[in-house]
Amino acid sequence: MRSRRAAIGGRLLVRLATSVMVLWGAVTVSFCALHLTPGSVEDALVGTTIVTPEVRAQIAVDYGLDRPLLVQYGAYLGRVVSGDLGYSYQRHESVVSAIGAGIGPSLQLAGAGMALALVVATVSALTTAGRARWIRGLASGAELVGTSVPMFWVGILLLTVFSFQLGWMPAVGGDGLTGLVLPAISMAIPVGALLSQVMREGLERVLQQPFALTARARGMSDGGVRLRHALRHALLPVITLAGWLFGMLLGAMVVTEKVFSRPGLGVLMLDAVHGKDLPVVMGVVLVSATVYVVVNTGLDLIYPVIDPRLREAT
């Protein structure tokens, strides 16, 4: 028993160390990428406006741009460890507060979109897997459309119908739930369609397995077979995919944020990349990488709960 705990502890330590390496790598790569692209930060800040040489010098001093690149990198890493992500060049606020303002709406949107997508995918896969040809055809047709239509197009269509025409939802300034419904739906459509495809395929494979036949032979109802046996098997690849999608959504959200005029990490990142606002770019990269790591670690912990075989393995 003790040795097993030690093994789990060891695995956790390794996991933690690799996570730190991932985060360090993410920060370093983004630092290099932004410094390797042509153009200086001062130039990006000044743009095409006319500033006095004193203002230019002040910018360089304020942001430590007059120091060698390696020193800037070292200083940045040092500050990150102490929880200070620096000060935005353009936004006149600390990176922590800029991200703090954006991460709430982003997580809400990604979370709501993801949850909705999972529910829709599960329901649709459970009800259509292994059914008559025309039902499956209908479902997979809908999925194909869902994964193919661009997210912004869905967003604008939803706004046109439910906001401009029917007036059910505000197009702008919606707080809380009313402001979240349409953006979450527009995100859930492509994600849900993709997950539904994967899940139905998995379900259909499982339903052909001998144990499914055995369960039916025991007199179990069709719904029971699907819910108690098949779903668990089909869920694993979906959960893996969902974890990856969640991380991706944080970035892909910029389109939805633009269409629905929502603040969030996507818009923050886009503006920062355009303006060469290094501290914000690196801050968002770091936070996104952290979210990835946390979500994937969380998923690793969930796998054994879903699949008992993995429990034995540990």
Binding site: I156, T160, S163, G167, A171, G173, K258, V259
Partner: peptide, 21 residues
């Protein structure tokens, strides 16, 4: 006075035609 920021052209136009701004 409330000034909202709607960067997307078609949404801004739609918000006006539907009386939301």
């Amino acid at each position: 006075l409330e000034i909202s920021i709607i960067p997307e052209d078609s949404i801004r136009v739609g918000a006006l035609s539907s009386g939301q701004v």
